[in-house]
Amino acid sequence: MVSVMSPVVWVLTIAGLLGLVAFDLVVIARRKHAVTIKDATRWVLFYVGLAGLFALGLFLFAPGQSGSEFVAGYVTEYSLSVDNLFVFVIIMARFAVPGPAQDKVLYVGIVVSMLLRAVFILAGAAAISAASWVFYVFGAFLVYTAVRLALEGESDPDDFKENAVLRGLRRILPLAQDYDGARLTTRANGRRQLTPLVIVIAAIGTANVIFALDSIPAIFGLTQDAYIVLTANAFALMGLRQLYFLIGGLLERIVYLNVGLSVILAFIGVKLIVEALHGSHIDDLGAIHLPHIGILTSLGFIVGTLFVTTVVSLVKSSYDSRRAAVRVKADD
């Protein structure tokens, strides 16, 4: 496994991340109301600020390009995670999750996802260390994912289908029919049963893992340092829950998000394949020279793509809203 960090740094970092997870749990336990926009804004800024401080520490004290790689990885993971929010909105609507319970559902689901992603990251790092051809596989998969994502239409709650894991849980677990606030268990029909929140948490967790199949190969296209991959994923996921409450209603306005993310995934996929070719001492394909794509170039491309995607989406949404308003007036 490739990493420039010492075992001591690994231990301290993991301890710090676990401390943040525990701190977040205490905050949720003490909160007695549904998450407000003000709450969400404050916590999003808090976690983004923490990621910024962590990046600053890497720039100052870590060797090589660790700081730049973390920023590029974090921005990529965070932007790809925004696509998760569409699925979260669909799941919450599909299962009619009560407002006060949504925070707890997202927390548990994301923590489970963090643990499973850690396993994926370690497995991916081990695979890359063992065989360089894994880059070709990751690169081709990202290009395929980019094409698939670009061709996807808008999501709708009616499109949600329970996967095999959820169907299996429904068969084997004693599930109550109704929610009981934010509780995971309740007493019904004279016995203790699990509430539907358990299924919702499983849905959130499995959705996050499925998205990890795209995002983890993407970040390995930016850095092969398992430490950077792990921390970038952790910080991106930590802010995801609060981001859900902050911009959940704005997601519909980012109409070209899938297109922007597909461009980023395709870029990283091609970058991976080019790096694999360089590793095989292939610097040219016929008359085409294969350039080295540095981390700063990658970061600039990713940020630029996200900026253009957001601006064009908001302009398109605003234009559509004005046209709709004109049609309503004309009908009146």
Rank of each mutant, 00 (worst) to 15 (best):
V2W: 08
S3C: 08
P7N: 13
V9Q: 15
V11P: 12
L12Q: 07
G16P: 14
L18S: 11
G19A: 15
G19H: 09
A22Q: 04
A22P: 03
F23H: 09
D24C: 13
D24H: 14
L25T: 12
V27T: 11
A29V: 05
R30K: 15
A34G: 14
T36I: 05
I37W: 02
K38T: 15
D39R: 02
A40P: 14
A40K: 12
T41K: 06
T41D: 06
V44Q: 12
L45Y: 07
F46D: 08
Y47A: 06
Y47N: 13
G49E: 07
A51Y: 01
L53Q: 02
F61T: 15
S66Y: 03
A72S: 12
Y78Q: 06
S79F: 13
S79D: 04
S81M: 10
S81R: 04
D83Q: 02
F88T: 13
A93S: 06
A93W: 01
R94I: 01
F95K: 11
F95G: 09
V97K: 13
P98W: 00
A101S: 13
V105P: 08
L106Y: 05
L106W: 04
Y107P: 01
L116I: 14
A118D: 03
A123D: 02
S129E: 14
A130L: 09
S132P: 03
W133H: 09
A140I: 15
L142W: 04
V143Q: 08
V143P: 05
Y144W: 15
E152F: 03
E154L: 08
F160T: 09
E162H: 01
V165N: 14
R167K: 15
G168R: 00
G168A: 06
L169N: 11
I172D: 03
Q177F: 10
Q177A: 15
Y179G: 10
D180E: 13
D180C: 12
G181F: 05
L184N: 08
T185F: 12
A188F: 08
R191I: 09
R192A: 08
T195I: 02
L197K: 01
L197G: 04
L197R: 02
T206P: 06
N208F: 06
V209K: 03
I210N: 03
A212E: 05
D214N: 03
P217A: 06
A218L: 07
A218M: 08
I219H: 00
Q224I: 04
D225M: 07
N233S: 12
L237F: 03
M238I: 11
M238Q: 03
Q242C: 04
Y244H: 07
F245W: 10
G249I: 10
E252T: 15
Y256G: 10
L257K: 03
N258I: 09
V259Q: 05
G260A: 13
L261Q: 06
G269S: 06
G269T: 08
G269H: 09
V270I: 13
K271L: 13
V274A: 14
V274R: 02
L277Q: 02
S280V: 09
I282N: 07
P291H: 09
P291F: 07
G294R: 10
L296T: 14
S298D: 12
S298H: 09
I302K: 00
V303T: 08
V303Y: 03
T309A: 00
V315C: 02
S318C: 08
Y319L: 14
R322A: 13
R323C: 01
V326D: 02
V328F: 00
K329E: 13
D331W: 00
